[in-house]
Amino acid sequence: MSCSEDPTCQELLDHIYELVDADEDAIDERSRALLAAHAAVCPSCRDAVDAERHVRELLRRCCGESVHAPAALRVRVVSMTTRVRRTE
């Protein structure tokens, strides 16, 4: 994934999971830096990123770090989200 030089709020929201996950396979370092810079100056995007991180932290605490989705489920979810993004 690559984002524009001056990402919009919608662009950040479209890629919030990649940003929060810091998934190097899903988002390049330049795009991550641009989206993070946008979130640093945009209160609504910063709130969205903070909320997503908070939800993930709650899930980690409630479910424990040892609980993982089966590999087949992860493959299906990634495949479905990739397909959805291509049709948008």
Rank of each mutant, 00 (worst) to 15 (best):
Q10H: 12
L73K: 05
V77I: 15
A37R: 13
R83D: 14
L59F: 07
A33G: 01
P7F: 11
S4N: 09
S31H: 08
E5Q: 10
P70G: 13
L34W: 02
E11R: 06
T8M: 14
A39V: 00
R83T: 07
L73Y: 12
V49H: 02
R85D: 12
R86F: 04
Y17I: 00
M1L: 11
H38I: 03
P70M: 13
R74Y: 00
P7R: 15
A37K: 10
A36R: 14
A69H: 11
V20Q: 04
L12W: 03
I27T: 07
D14T: 03
M80Y: 08
D25R: 11
L12E: 04
R86E: 15
M1W: 02
E29Y: 05
D28F: 03
P7M: 13
A39N: 06
T81F: 10
P70S: 15
E29Q: 11
L34P: 01
D28R: 12
V20Y: 00
G64K: 03
S79K: 09
L12H: 09
L19Y: 04
A69W: 00
T87Q: 15
V67C: 14
I16W: 10
V20H: 01
E57F: 00
R60W: 01
C42V: 01
R61G: 02
L12P: 04
T87E: 15
I27P: 00
L34T: 10
C62A: 15
E65I: 05
C3V: 15
S66G: 03
L35D: 06
D28C: 08
H54G: 04
C42K: 11
R30C: 09
A48S: 07
R46H: 07
M1G: 06
A51L: 12
A36I: 00
E29A: 13
A72Y: 03
I27C: 11
C45V: 01
A40M: 09
D50W: 00
M1H: 08
A39E: 02
R61C: 08
L13Q: 10
R74Q: 04
V20L: 01
E11A: 12
D50M: 05
E88A: 06
V49D: 04
M1Q: 05
H68V: 13
D25F: 05
R30T: 15
A51F: 11
R53L: 11
C42F: 08
A39L: 05
R53K: 11
A48R: 06
R74A: 11
P7K: 15
E24C: 03
V55H: 07
R61W: 02
E24Y: 02
E52N: 02
M80N: 04
E29M: 07
G64I: 01
D23M: 07
A40V: 07
A37C: 06
V67D: 05
R46D: 10
S4A: 15
C9L: 13
R53M: 10
R32E: 05
R53S: 05
A51W: 07
L73I: 09
D25C: 02
P7G: 10
A69Q: 08
I16S: 14
L34S: 11
E29G: 08
V78Q: 12
M1V: 08
D28N: 13
A51C: 03
L58K: 04
E29H: 09
